[in-house]
Simulated assay, not measured.
Amino acid sequence: MTDAPASPETPCVLSPRDEARVWFALQAERTSDAALALLPIDPAAPQGDRLRRALALKKELDGLITRAVIAEREEGTTWAQLADAASITRQAAHERWAPAVSAWAANGRTTFPEDSGISTLAAARRLDRKHADQHPDHSENAVSSGLDAVRFPGAAAAEAARRERATGLHARLASLITQLHGMHKELSLLTEAGARPEARAAVLTQQADLEEVMAAVYEELTGAEPELADEHRARAERARANTVAEREYAELLAAKAEAGYQTEGVTK
């Protein structure tokens, strides 16, 4: 079933916490439907068909687990608490799921693209109806009643302002990352061409400057998206470490270039 377009009074984009909750619920629906599709027994099914479909279900379940982690992080669950729930170490939990949490943040922390015309709240209410049909003894609003947009509608303006700030910072990061990729390519070409050390040192210095700016933007994001502060702080630290390494390498290349010039002067 296609989710209904948003009505004028219904916001398309909810708080990140609400968005993550509905995103999880939609994946739970997909996983449930995929599991029920395995029930019919077809004696004429090709060999390997059951395994293929079971593996497809596992893929849906893996997606559900990832969305559960994202929803938990939006609710303030720590990596230590997630590790305990998964019976793994904190480091293992972070390595496994942090990239997905960061990707969720970079993509705007929304269930649907803002220009899709699909309301997350409308999707939640559709899930309400489906759940109520299958579980008439449960709440009629099992999904939507737990959303902040329903419980605390007055908080929408504050959430919108915080989202706008975070969106601007992510857009700036995207531009900086594009520039950084260009510099990486330029440095690679210079290295392959056997360019003089000072030419490579200049590009490395530019990269270091750019990484330093990126670290500052990530730090700003810890305030704009406090629920994901751990991810942003880790990326800021990584950018600073890259800055130090690139500056040190640039200094080595500059020293090498200077030594080369002195050698050339003696030879002449």
Results as ranks from 00 to 15, higher is better:
10 T>V: 15
10 T>Q: 15
10 T>F: 01
10 T>Y: 03
11 P>Q: 06
11 P>V: 11
12 C>R: 15
13 V>Q: 07
13 V>P: 00
13 V>A: 02
13 V>F: 02
13 V>R: 13
14 L>T: 07
15 S>R: 11
15 S>Q: 09
16 P>C: 09
16 P>W: 04
16 P>T: 10
16 P>S: 06
16 P>E: 10
19 E>T: 10
19 E>N: 10
19 E>C: 06
20 A>K: 04
20 A>D: 13
21 R>W: 08
21 R>K: 13
22 V>G: 06
22 V>K: 06
23 W>P: 04
23 W>G: 15
23 W>A: 15
23 W>I: 07
23 W>F: 09
23 W>H: 15
24 F>N: 13
24 F>P: 00
25 A>Q: 14
25 A>E: 12
25 A>L: 08
27 Q>L: 05
27 Q>R: 10
28 A>V: 09
28 A>M: 10
29 E>K: 13
29 E>H: 12
30 R>M: 11
30 R>F: 03
30 R>G: 11
30 R>V: 14
31 T>K: 04
31 T>H: 03
32 S>N: 14
33 D>N: 13
34 A>P: 10
34 A>G: 13
34 A>V: 01
34 A>K: 14
34 A>D: 08
35 A>N: 11
36 L>C: 00
36 L>G: 00
36 L>T: 02
37 A>M: 12
37 A>G: 05
37 A>P: 07
38 L>A: 03
38 L>Q: 07
38 L>R: 06
39 L>Q: 09
39 L>T: 03
39 L>I: 13
39 L>G: 00
40 P>S: 02
40 P>F: 05
40 P>V: 08
40 P>H: 03
41 I>S: 07
41 I>T: 07
41 I>C: 07
42 D>A: 08
42 D>L: 08
43 P>Q: 04
44 A>H: 14
45 A>N: 09
45 A>G: 12
46 P>A: 11
46 P>C: 03
46 P>V: 01
46 P>D: 11
46 P>G: 07
47 Q>P: 05
47 Q>E: 14
48 G>D: 06
48 G>A: 05
48 G>Y: 11
48 G>V: 06
49 D>P: 01
49 D>C: 03
50 R>P: 00
50 R>C: 01
51 L>G: 01
51 L>Q: 11
51 L>T: 14
51 L>C: 04
51 L>I: 13
53 R>K: 15
53 R>P: 03
53 R>S: 08
54 A>G: 14
54 A>E: 10
